[in-house]
Structure formats: C-alpha cells, structure tokens
C-alpha cells in the first residue's frame, strides 16, 4: 500500500508541508497528498469491532459545527411543515442513527461468515459521491463538492429545504429546525433550518491532518488516500479475502469504499434501515441522465441551424423567397 495508512498519510502531509515551505507557496498538505486527485477512504468491515471510538471522535471534532437552535421555532406555514428538532438533551445523545448531532454511527449486521454466525459492525456516514446529487441539485448553492472529494453543506447558506436528503441515494443529510439563514428571510414561508452531515472533517484535511474518525480508530478500519490508490487497494483486499466492494460504482462512484467478507446483499438484508439508517443496496448513477441530456443540449443548436439551412434551401429550390410576402 503506498500512501494510505495513518502513518504514511501524515508522512506525506509532512513532506508536502516541507515542500510547500521550501517553495514559499503554502498549500494544504492533504491536497498535496492527493496529487490533485480526490481523496477517498477505504473501510475494511472485518476490522471494525464496533467500539464507537470513531463516533465519539467525530462528535468531539465537529461539536462546534453542531446547531444551537433558537426556541421557540417560528410557526410554519402551511401547518403540514413540521419542525425537525434533535436539540433536546436526550436526542442530542442519539448514537444509533444519523442526526444533526451524529454524523457517523455503527450499523450492525448479523450474517454468516465462513459458516459461522458473525455480527459485523459497519461505520456509516456520508459516502461523498464523486458527482454528488446533493451538491448538484441544491437550488441555493449551499451544498458543494470540494476539489479533494469532500461533499459538504455550508451551514451559513443552507435553508433546510431537505432537497439534498431527498435526492441523496442514502438519505444522509439530517435537518435541524430553528437555526440558519432562513430565520433572517421568510421563516414562516420558506426553509426549515439547516441540513447536517459528515464533511469528512474538511477543516482537518485542509491542514493535512486525518479526519477524526480515522485518527481515533484503534483498529485501523479506515484508510485514506488518492481515490485511484484506494480503489486498487480495495480490489487487492477483496481479492485476498474473497470479499466484496461497495461504493466503487454506486451512484457513479463514491469516495467511500467498503470491503466486506460477505456479499452486500446479505448485509443489506441484516441491517436495520430507515430514517437516518442508510441502506447498502446497489445504486445506479443518479446524475447519469442529466449528463446524457447535457450532450443533447450541445447538439441542439447545431440541429436548429441545420434545420434552418434546410428550410432556406428548400425555399430557394421551390423558387420561393423564405422572407416571402407578408401573409
């Protein structure tokens, strides 16, 4: 493995930082490690013991980003619009699903591995799609993708319309009402808070540091590196253990790859899914249709001009002036 372990990631970051100092052009070491590529993570499900060290590390590292909503919430119009409130003392502590205060959780799946009943524990969070629908379809520009492969939602811009959750194949973003920009606009009539999800500790990655969940894991479940290398490593690992990969092609490719000793169909049958608990089903590329239609858009003006030329030529052939006498 080239640059994917914690040690080598940091070593690469240090080397990049030195190079940046030498060239007097400081730049994020994380980006330098990626060599201009997107960073992806590999999650080796076999190694996870479900200790939740990653969950706690995530909460510690991101607690400053958590919402502190104003109560009471503005009355919504129409009444069908419900508040999403996870800010209570108990709900803030929920750890068995995704919430605005819990961006990573451990999903359990009891399956048969080599003839033995085994409970696999799987860290679940945003997949960080290569072409994220949340970022593409956000009508307000609040969700976006960074060059290093991180998909993030800007809490200062988000209006909490929840479109990102609806278009996300895994319904990852979670809403908290009573916070954010919508309060300054038309709180009764538009928006409903802010959407929250894993941003892969972008503030740490920008400094060349590891995301908190990777740094804290005592078992080395996750590794991070340039996507090409992570994909190669995922294949090497899957081949070695006779395992399976999830995330390489899902939704056109994500920057989170899971390797499991059992097929993901089996895990999918064994996990509890629902709100805040994402599935592990195959996912087609949700943005593929838009990409195909983009090609149609490029051809469209050419087709229009060709039709016009044909129209004029036909008019000339039949001896009629296209700009004929007004009728």
């Amino acid at each position: 493995m080239t640059s994917m372990s914690r040690r080598s990631f940091l070593k690469g970051g240090l080397a990049a930082a030195c190079a940046a100092c030498a060239s007097q052009l400081p730049k994020p070491a994380g980006a330098a490690v990626a060599g201009g590529q997107e960073l992806a993570t590999l999650i080796d499900i076999r190694r996870c013991i479900g200790c939740e060290a990653c969950v706690e590390a995530c909460r510690d590292a991101n607690s400053e980003k958590y919402p502190e909503p104003e109560h009471p919430f503005p009355e919504m119009f129409p009444a069908r619009v419900k508040a999403s409130d996870w800010s209570g003392d108990e709900t803030r502590e929920v750890r068995d699903r995704l919430t605005p205060y819990n961006w990573l959780f451990i999903q359990d799946a009891t399956v048969m591995v080599n003839g033995e009943e085994t409970t696999l524990t799987i860290p679940r969070r945003c997949m960080h799609c290569q072409n994220p629908p949340c970022a593409n379809l956000c009508p307000w520009g609040a969700a976006r993708k960074l060059k290093n492969g991180i998909a993030l939602i800007d809490a200062d811009l988000c209006l909490g319309g929840k479109k990102c959750q609806v278009v996300c194949p895994w319904c990852i973003p979670q809403r908290q009402t009573g916070v954010g920009l919508y309060l300054d606009l038309l709180p009764r009539f538009a928006g409903n808070g802010v959407m929250y999800k894993c941003d892969r500790c972008h503030q740490l990655v920008e400094k060349g540091e590891l995301p908190a969940c990777i740094e804290a894991c005592p078992e080395g479940v996750q590794t991070i590196g340039p996507r090409e290398e992570i994909v190669r490593e995922a294949h090497r690992l899957a081949e070695r253990i006779g395992g399976y990969i999830y995330g390489e092609t899902e939704n056109g490719g994500t920057n989170t790859l899971y390797v499991s000793p059992v097929p993901f169909e089996e895990i999918e049958r064994a996990i509890e899914t629902g709100p805040g608990r994402p599935h592990l089903q195959p996912v087609e590329d949700r943005m593929a249709k838009a990409e195909n239609l983009t090609t149609a858009m490029l051809i469209a003006p050419v087709a229009g001009v060709a039709a016009a030329v044909g129209r004029i030529a036909k008019g000339l052939k039949s001896g009629q002036d296209t700009a004929g006498d007004p009728r």
Partner: peptide, 8 residues
C-alpha cells in the same frame, strides 16, 4: 436551443 438556433 433548437428553436432559438433555428429562428436566429
């Protein structure tokens, strides 16, 4: 775009 290009 087809329509606009045609008319133009």
């Amino acid at each position: 775009l087809v329509l606009v290009a045609y008319c133009m």
